[in-house]
Design a protein around this nucleic acid. Structure first.
Lengths: 252, 252
DNA sequence: CTGCGGCCTCCCGCTACGTGAGGGTCAATC
DNA sequence: GATTGACCCTCACGTAGCGGGAGGCCGCAG
């Protein structure tokens, strides 16, 4: 029993060659082979294929997908939940792009020229380069800046992926605490603030409590950063600033 | 004046190598070079780059993008409009995927097993293979079937792209006529039906009026096909059937 | 026993870049 | 005016994710 390569390919709308490839690289090995060496795919194999295709559609590399699917303690429901979340983010991004296109159309009609930054705002999402440029203007020549430059220069794509993932988690933690009404100067919010500080210290530079407070101010004052928080929840940037200050006071 | 590779790369969130590549293949040549051979990008160059990145994001190959951007009589506004449309489609698809994930979660919770077809429904969008399998069951051994098999075997990806695009246009034409209240047995709807028939004859097999009427029935009776029309507009499948019948009567 | 579709394993090709190597350029600085 | 360091140049080879064909075995229909 089980399904042949051709059948599976037809179900999934992919080619036989693709299945061969996934077998080769070990991403999806059919659980059985016939006496003649034919690949036989079982139901669980189809399950896995579905997951693979989903994550692929969302832009993950095959290697990343293998890691995700093989990490221990990840049941199907977890994957479905995660996929749903990823899809929602992706949709959000595309909607932002659609809005940007509209914006460009308006500007074009009015004859208003766009600045280069405006033009590409939509791409780059979480652009470290842009961040770095900003950072230079603000803190050029400072210790923290030098440290950041030296350290980030050696980071690989995987590192960056891990960093942004971690940053996302912290952001979510802030958002959750905020949404559930935890006070900004309460333990929960302060703990998240501390995680935030640790994150920066770990990946960028020694973030003292003083510097951290400065960052908190910036998250409110600089619309660029504020937007990052405000688009998650209205008022979140202020909440984050309060939490950072409270956390700094706690450790003073 | 103008911008250097590095500056442009930072704006756009891409690498310098990517710009080099686009220069190499002629997709985006900087309009100037400095005396030392440095690339200098002008404002119109940035405009073009923005278009390139948009279409790239939407999954077009670089070659296709070059064709799109260089086709005569395509002004920027046209591109913006098209991009907006493409984005909306893409968003629609992702939303369908999100719905499917929810569906899978429900099924999982209820302990309902999914059939292989159900599992992959979301991918493949307009799956020709699935269509072919269905077709075999229905018309296996018939002339039309043989003809389709022989002809489609030689189609390239570009052909398929053209085919689905054409099919999409016909669908839109039906939808538009329907939405604007044109009667199903009126000239406008019948003309679209005739386009539909021509499309099939051109790409698959000689679609006689008799066969066409059979297809019309199927578009209503078979939920698989009906869904294709109904998700565009409620009642559209019936409308299409009527139009096809009227058109056949007109040519009888 | 002879097709004929489907399956197998190489293996080379393609796209869209990544990633150095080896070497000029340019503005600031010593 | 020489050095330094960021930035630029041109090769040129490497990689991911398959596409597609060659050459050959499998299995059933006629």
């Amino acid at each position: 029993m089980g399904y042949s390569v051709g059948q599976v390919a037809r179900f999934a709308g992919i080619t036989v060659r693709t299945l061969h490839h996934y077998d080769e690289i070990g991403l999806l090995r059919p659980s059985e082979r016939s006496a003649a060496g034919y690949r036989r795919y079982s139901e669980p194999d189809l399950d896995r294929l579905q997951q693979v295709l989903f994550y692929r559609e969302l832009g993950f590399s095959l290697e990343e997908i293998a890691v995700i699917l093989d990490e221990p303690g990840s049941d199907p429901v977890t994957h479905l939940r995660r996929q749903h979340e990823l899809l929602r983010r992706r949709i959000g991004r595309l909607e932002a792009m659609a809005a940007a296109v509209k914006h460009a159309m308006e500007a074009r009609k009015m004859g208003i020229p766009l600045t280069p930054e405006e033009r590409f705002e939509v791409f780059g999402d979480f652009d470290p380069a842009q961040f770095a440029e900003e950072a230079e203007e603000r803190w050029g020549g400072t210790d923290a800046f030098e440290q950041t430059r030296r350290r980030t220069a050696r980071y690989t794509r995987d590192d960056w992926r891990a960093i942004t993932a971690e940053a996302g988690e912290v952001l979510q933690a802030f958002a959750a605490a905020f949404a559930e009404g935890a006070p900004a100067d309460g333990e929960r919010a302060m703990d998240v603030a501390e995680r935030h500080r640790a994150h920066i210290t770990r990946w960028f530079y020694d973030c003292t409590y003083e510097i951290h407070k400065g960052l908190g101010e910036m998250y409110v004052d600089d619309p660029r950063f504020a937007a990052n928080y405000e688009r998650v929840a209205e008022g979140l940037s202020h909440y984050v600033r309060e939490a950072i200050h409270a956390n700094a006071a706690r450790h003073a």
